[in-house]
Write a protein that binds this DNA or RNA. Structure first.
Lengths: 188, 188
DNA sequence: TTATAGTATTAGATAAGTCAAATAGTTAGA
DNA sequence: TCTAACTATTTGACTTATCTAATACTATAA
């Protein structure tokens, strides 16, 4: 469902193609909703069938011509009603790295310490990547999305990316605490 | 993939049925990996076909008899190699509430403030629920999973649930900051 | 004894997501 | 001119997830 909503959301900024949408996802929302290329194009077709978006033209710069989609009035309404009716189920997350942490107790002590280090390292590189997005890639995002820096739609996108950064920092703290807990425990 | 791994993980604690697994998910990992009942049973069949788990018996308490599955040696190896090889893609999350935040700038100022309040409230109820899990339901989890309180597998499960609590708290902070930012901005 | 609630599993129909690869145009450089 | 890299979309096969509901057993209480 969130891919539908994500695509509607991007198209509410300006008319764009599947390729543009993929690029925007990659530079912003990819951490909290992955978007497969094939799935984007399929979802565009289905949103068009449902009358939530429509083909509004074609554009050719460097490379083959691309199909531009525009959100319809019905699409905007759908998006609004989605935003105005959040529910608890929207707070159900999918976090594969936490599933790993959950079951990491199946490893022996040495392996477990290695696992925690590996997670820490991956979490650090993600943090770096997201911080970059948050600071440096802001401009590229605003430009590609066609938004000025004081547009609320730009600001809300930045808030969400900010979450990614904060979330990594929270996880760093937790991993550090866990490691300390293990090391001060019974040593074998 | 994480449902496969989650089921293997639970079965590495003790032999149990699909129903038991569902109960354990609900009282622990449901926040970071939702488990559909039908999907659990289908995944059990497919793991059995692959030789990662096997039927080890039947049990009847109150209600109809249940089929107990046990993890095989091959299943344990699969689980180990999953835990010992974390990658960046395991850090790609799915967070529907953040997709909402991302696109919330499409709302007008008044609606946006309402949206942030609604998210805050939902986040608070989730926090309460997860805190409860973290404090009160620990015992029920340990008992259902057949783990003692000093078993590393119990401890790692508790760490992961701790993340849920911390994550809610981080989000509360972010939402508070965002709201302050809006309210001190240009008032219309 | 009848209804209800909880236990336990299965089936069917869709929907959504993943992965790999094919197709095809454009540009820039060796 | 050939090739490599980037742009842009589509297809097929498959896996995973979701939603609904059917089936059926047991225990408890009205």
């Amino acid at each position: 469902m969130s891919l539908n909503n994500g695509i509607l959301g991007f198209l509410s900024m300006k008319p764009m193609s599947g390729y543009d949408i993929k690029k925007l996802f990659n530079m912003s929302a990819a951490y909290f909703w992955p978007a497969d290329q094939a799935q984007i194009y399929r979802t565009l077709k289905s949103l068009e069938r449902d009358g939530l978006i429509e083909v509004s033209g074609f554009e050719q710069n460097a490379g083959p011509s691309k199909t531009l989609y525009t959100i319809t009035e019905r699409g905007r309404e759908t998006m609004r009603s989605w935003l105005l009716n959040p529910t608890l189920s929207d707070f159900v997350a999918r976090l594969p790295f936490l599933v790993e942490l959950f079951f990491s107790g199946a490893l022996n002590r040495k392996e477990l310490l290695g696992f925690l280090d590996a997670q820490m390292e991956l979490n650090n590189s993600l943090h770096e990547k997201l911080s970059e997005n948050y600071t440096e890639n802001k401009n590229a995002f605003a430009e590609t999305a066609g938004l000025s820096k004081d547009d609320p739609r730009y600001l809300s996108a930045v808030w969400a990316c900010r979450w990614g950064v904060l979330s990594c920092e929270t996880y760093t703290k937790l991993l550090t605490e866990i490691k300390a807990e293990i090391l001060t425990g019974t040593d074998c």
